[in-house]
Computed example of a mutant assay.
Amino acid sequence: MANKIKCSHILVQKQSEAIAILDKIRQGEKFGKLARELSVDSGSAKRDGNLGYFGRGKMVKEFETAAFNLEVGKISEPVKTQYGYHIIKRLS
């Protein structure tokens, strides 16, 4: 089990928005481009959604669980947290 992982995410307020973005990704649109254009997390959006490396206990539980359970290179279904709905891409 990895001690630290690297992920990108796209954060939106509505589940319907997250599902629509996931559909766009599945149709071939670039994750980073969509993060820059649509994510409400302005800090990470500027970096294609990149959150950098983080370990356990650094993110809210729902996000952390989903992120650590993803295989490298995979993209999650929408994950609901207190901040909204995240689409997470595990980078390492």
Results as ranks from 00 to 15, higher is better:
residue 2 A to G: 10
residue 3 N to Y: 15
residue 3 N to W: 14
residue 6 K to R: 15
residue 6 K to Y: 04
residue 7 C to H: 01
residue 8 S to I: 02
residue 8 S to Q: 08
residue 10 I to A: 08
residue 11 L to K: 03
residue 13 Q to I: 14
residue 18 A to E: 00
residue 19 I to A: 12
residue 20 A to R: 03
residue 20 A to E: 08
residue 21 I to K: 07
residue 22 L to N: 13
residue 23 D to E: 15
residue 24 K to T: 14
residue 25 I to V: 15
residue 26 R to E: 14
residue 26 R to Y: 10
residue 27 Q to Y: 11
residue 33 K to V: 15
residue 34 L to I: 13
residue 35 A to L: 05
residue 36 R to C: 02
residue 36 R to F: 10
residue 37 E to H: 11
residue 37 E to V: 09
residue 38 L to H: 09
residue 38 L to W: 09
residue 39 S to L: 07
residue 40 V to F: 07
residue 41 D to W: 07
residue 41 D to M: 01
residue 43 G to S: 11
residue 44 S to W: 04
residue 45 A to P: 06
residue 49 G to A: 03
residue 49 G to Y: 00
residue 49 G to E: 03
residue 51 L to S: 06
residue 52 G to H: 09
residue 54 F to N: 03
residue 54 F to Q: 02
residue 54 F to P: 02
residue 55 G to V: 06
residue 55 G to N: 13
residue 55 G to A: 10
residue 56 R to P: 11
residue 56 R to V: 04
residue 57 G to D: 11
residue 57 G to C: 11
residue 58 K to T: 13
residue 59 M to I: 04
residue 60 V to H: 02
residue 60 V to G: 07
residue 61 K to I: 10
residue 62 E to V: 01
residue 63 F to D: 03
residue 64 E to W: 01
residue 65 T to G: 00
residue 65 T to N: 04
residue 65 T to F: 10
residue 67 A to T: 02
residue 67 A to H: 05
residue 68 F to Q: 02
residue 69 N to A: 07
residue 69 N to K: 10
residue 72 V to P: 04
residue 73 G to E: 03
residue 73 G to Y: 01
residue 73 G to L: 01
residue 75 I to G: 02
residue 76 S to I: 02
residue 78 P to Y: 03
residue 79 V to H: 08
residue 79 V to C: 07
residue 80 K to W: 00
residue 81 T to I: 12
residue 81 T to F: 12
residue 82 Q to D: 14
residue 83 Y to S: 04
residue 84 G to M: 07
residue 86 H to L: 07
residue 87 I to P: 09
residue 90 R to P: 10
